[in-house]
Design a binder for these strands. Structure first.
Length: 355
DNA sequence: GATTCGTGGAC
DNA sequence: TGTCCAAGAAT
């Protein structure tokens, strides 16, 4: 459906040269690739996360841990705390494990997609992206942007995730041996700025002449299966304060908010409500609640403040006293940061703050 | 293949 | 207000 001789990758790379996004972890089109450490760090942070959310975290990590060796040698609690607020905390645990694995092999990342894929936290997308962007390997890079562009370009009506194999084949077929990293980033930029989920700007698209989906209604693609309704859960968190310090725990390494500092809680989860069991006997005063939306459930978390005087039964193995003056350095995930804000702001009115 | 993992911004 | 969704991975 296109009369010109220019191929899809040629058109896309030409568009990218003129319209690429400038991002802190990127090299300009055609320039030498960035340090693989930067590419890897940014790609892990960008998993299911917007560029705007990543930018400050990327700057902070790079300033504090300029090399993968520095990151591997860092205190794990410091790395997790620095990740707090970015979400999907398994990424932080995998980031640490991956840094140690790379440091153990001399500090150089493997330079092939197949070897990168073996590292913790690098799945199909990230391994291909690092191989293409940092090492110039002709790897097929497929993220949600690429899925959208490809399903529209080819009018693929098979719903995700079934269509993934077909999409991968289509991407592989148009990925060039020259500038594969720029090509991958061009596909993602096109998806992010032109071939957007809503109101795509087809008039600005360099591939519109090739697009089978345009005349059918590009917003119909990709087809997705309906998602299940989010359950509503409720639970409690417990605020125990003494001598301008608050009692913090560390969550188990698996499951929600795994490995992160936290307030004691009553066992709420995606599967059920908490049991309202406090970690200390004595008087507890409700201080309001916070609503927080997770990916697969919504939580109403009620804050209970300890008004007793005897904290001697708290197990030092289960937590630590943390100075209120530096609570923002504790690395609390957003849910608990909100809860702490509710108490420290003196919100004794019992009101609910939303998310 | 289906679930379980956060968070904040856009509309 | 609710809904969607973003450079996905691990199990």
């Amino acid at each position: 459906m296109d009369a010109s001789a220019e191929t899809i990758p040629e058109k896309l790379l030409g568009w990218y040269d003129a319209h690429h996004r400038s991002l802190p972890w990127r090299s300009p089109p055609g320039a030498l690739p960035p340090d693989p450490y930067r590419v890897w760090l940014s790609e892990v942070m960008l998993q299911q996360t917007t560029t705007a959310a990543v930018a400050p975290y990327f700057a902070k990590f790079l300033a504090r841990w300029p090399t993968v060796a520095a990151l591997a040698a860092a205190d794990e609690g410091d790395v997790k705390a620095a990740w707090a607020g970015l979400g999907y905390y398994a990424r932080a645990r995998n980031l640490i494990a991956c840094a140690k694995a790379v440091a153990a092999r001399g500090g150089d990342f493997p330079d092939s997609e197949a070897e990168l894929r073996k590292l913790p936290g690098l799945g199909a997308y990230t391994a291909a992206a690092v191989a293409a962007i940092a090492f110039g390997e002709r790897a097929a890079v497929v993220d949600a942007n690429v899925e959208r562009v490809i399903t529209r370009l080819n009018a693929i009506a098979i719903p995700l995730p079934q269509a993934r194999t077909q999409i991968l084949g289509k991407v592989d077929a148009i990925t060039p041996a020259d500038r594969p990293g720029d090509f991958a980033q061009a596909m993602m930029d096109l998806g992010a700025t032109v071939c957007t989920p809503r109101a795509p700007r087809c008039l600005l698209c360099p591939l519109s002449d090739h697009c089978a989906g345009r005349s059918l209604g590009p917003e119909k693609f990709p087809v997705k299966l309906a998602k299940a309704a989010k359950p509503q859960r409720s639970g409690q968190a417990f605020w125990i304060e003494q001598d301008d310090q608050v009692w913090l725990t560390r969550r188990a390494n698996t499951g929600m908010l795994g490995g992160m500092r936290a307030l004691p809680d009553d066992g709420w989860s995606a599967r059920g409500d908490g049991d309202a069991q406090a970690p200390l006997d004595g008087d507890w005063t409700p201080a309001g609640s916070v609503r927080h939306g997770f990916t697969h459930f919504d939580l109403d978390l009620q804050l209970m403040v300890y008004s007793g005087a005897d904290c001697s039964r708290l197990d030092p193995q289960q937590g630590e006293w943390w100075a209120l003056g530096r609570l923002d350095e504790a690395g609390l995930p957003t849910l608990f940061a909100k809860a702490a804000r509710l108490v420290t702001a003196g919100a004794a009115t019992g009101r609910t703050i939303g998310d």
